[in-house]
Every structure is written in structure tokens, then in C-alpha cells.
Computed example of a mutant assay.
Amino acid sequence: MASLPRSDDSRFGLRRQVRLAGPIALSSGASLGPVDIAYETYGAMNADKSNVILICHALTGDQYVASDHPVTGKPGWWWRLVGQGKPVDPARHFIICSNVIGSCMGSSGPASVDPATGEPHAMRFPVLTIADMVRAQAALLDHLGVERLSAVIGGSMGGMQALTWPTLFPDRVESCVVIASTARHSAQNIAFHEVGRQAIMADPNWRGGDYYADGMVPSAGLAVARMAAHITYLSEEGLTKKFGRRLQDRSEKTFGFDADFQIESYLRYQGISFSNRFDANSYLYITRAMDYYDIAEDHGGSLARAFAATRARFCLVSFDTDWLYPTAESRAIVHALNAGGAQASFVELSSPFGHDAFLLECPELNRVVDGFLRGGRA
């Protein structure tokens, strides 16, 4: 196992990586190795290694949970929750956040080079699951000498990883915080992902995924995929309050197909900016991993059985305007945990911001997470 040098790739920024020999056995029956993992750490491990917290990121997230992003220059995606004096505090915790395999910020994925060919994997990269992402994280922890996690925390797809941890490694997790997430992907969520994937694959520049050599990337298709997905992260209340039917930089409609409305301009901006920092093939792979996610299916159809071996404490948080992973999804998890005798607490928070609420200003979320990590209940 060797650390890799930092990359000067201007598209995806500087990278802190480790190369693990592997191989990692995948859910599909394939294997992956060697495996590159890009990660960030904050704080210091204490003498008995009992203060380690793993943060898991969402679909389009990365390892820069509390660091400035090397491409966009923006603060880390969860700076409101992770940092000095915050619930996840480097003064108290040793915090690890890694880029999931399949992504494009330094971990092995379709954009990374296949050592066997010297060319990017592209669509020859193996199809992954959320469980495969967790197995790769476990391999990273082995490399770092971490046997047990004080807590694993994640929101959205990060919550899927967090919830999967105690099912795969029940003896390595003391507590688990799952925010705005679910135990399986619904038909509606799969449908939204399929729209995005088809937009990418319909882009003439996609070319079956082999677009790395000339830099002609399917940015238009990826932008449309992002626009469609971004709508699901918002709420009707939030959209109405922020945009309504207000026009964009004009006093009258154009009676054409330019971005007349502010919401149209906003979505176009989101799509374009996203295509400048993310890889289209990675989007295909990660959304497919989310679609395959169903913890009960992996345990004989019983969600309660999935947690039978763990003694971890659980904290579930949902938001009342989140229609992507509504509160009913979190309640189903809590019922399964209770059926299995696990310690589980749950709270639904009020927010006008829909699914994105877990990333935005929410003092109540900070209080819940801080109290739970200090040994209390939600």
C-alpha cells in the first residue's frame, strides 16, 4: 500500500490519495484492484483510537467536507456541521472523509487509468453498489490503522453508506447518524436517475463513454441530468419563495425559449457549473449504485434482520419538506431497528428547503447531531 503523489489535474484539482493493493470483492461478483482512494482527515487520533468519525458524502459530493474545494474554491460541503466548535469537531474527533469509488475526485472510477491498459477505464469500469463503496472505505480504514468507528455520519447517499456500515461491519461501528436518507431507492427515484442517464448518453459527445482522449465531454447531457436531479433536491415552498414566477433580468416575456424565468436561469447555471467539476461517466455509475440500493433485499427481504448483529446506536433525521426521501422512509428504518432491538432515536425537522436542508443552515440539526455524539438521544 503506497501513498500516491498529488495530481496537478486542473479539471479535478489536487488529490490526497492512497493506492490499496486490493482486490476488493464487489457485489456483482467482479473485483477491483488496485484501488485508489482520495481522502481528507481533520483532527488527530487519540491514544486508544476511540475518537474516529467517518463522514460519507452524497452523490455529487467529495472528500472536501470541511476544506475549500480545489476546483470551485467554495467552502467544504458540510462546513456548517464539521469544524472547530461544531458538532463534528477536529478538537475532539479524528474525522475522515473519502471520495467514493466510482467518483471522479481521485478515487478509482471510470475516469481513472486502468493499470492494465494505461487508458481510462471509461465504461469498462465494473458496476458498483453502495455496499462496494463501504467496502472500499473499510479498506482505507484498515490502511490507516482504524479498527472501530466512534460514529459514521452521512446525508442522502452518504446516509445510505452510513446505514450500510453496521450491516456489513457490525463490530466496527459504535454509532450511526443517517440524515435525509432511506433504506432503499424507490421506483420514483430510479425514474429520475434514468432520465439523467439517458440525457448523458444521448449527448453526441458521450460516444459510449470514450470521451477522455480529446476532451470533448458530454457536458450538455450532464448539465440536463443535473438540472433534472436538482429539482428533486428542492421543495415547492422553497422554489416559490426564492423564485416564484419572477422574470430573469427583464420586465416582459420574450415569447421565445430563452431563460425568461429566474428558475430557468438558476437551473441552467446549476447544470453548467456542475458539468465543469464532475465526470459524466461517474454520474452514470453512482446513480446506478443508488438504484441498486436495497438493504432489506440483501438480507432475505427483512430490514430488521440486516441490523441483527450490530450493537450500534442510531440517530435518524428527516425533513418535513423532503419529498425525495420523505419522513416515512426514515420511520421505516426506525421501526426495523426497534424490531431488532437496536437503540434508535428519530426526529423530523421543519425546513422550507426540501432535501437540500441537510446541507443548509439548520441549527436544530446541529443540536441533534451534537447531542447524539455526546451520548444523548435525538
Rank of each mutant, 00 (worst) to 15 (best):
D260Y: 00
W165S: 02
A308V: 04
Q262G: 13
R135V: 11
M160L: 09
S350W: 11
I130L: 06
T232E: 12
A259Q: 07
R288G: 06
H93P: 01
V334C: 10
F192Q: 15
A259Y: 08
E236T: 14
A344I: 04
H185S: 13
S275P: 00
Y285H: 14
R305M: 06
H69A: 05
V146L: 04
P126Y: 10
R124L: 12
L81E: 01
S10T: 06
F243C: 01
G208H: 02
M216S: 15
R288N: 14
D291M: 04
L267M: 14
S302K: 03
E237M: 04
A136S: 13
G209L: 10
N46C: 12
R288E: 15
S3L: 08
A183N: 05
R16T: 10
R15L: 11
K86P: 12
R15V: 13
N281H: 11
R6Q: 15
E147C: 05
A296D: 12
L324V: 12
D9E: 11
E348W: 02
L32P: 01
H121N: 09
P34A: 13
E147I: 01
Y283I: 05
F125E: 06
L149D: 03
G102H: 02
E236H: 03
A2D: 04
H69L: 03
S251D: 15
V347G: 00
W165H: 08
L359Y: 12
G208A: 06
R268P: 00
S50N: 07
F278M: 01
F12I: 14
I190N: 01
A183C: 08
E147Q: 13
M133R: 00
V71I: 15
V177N: 00
G209E: 09
Y266T: 06
L81W: 03
G301R: 09
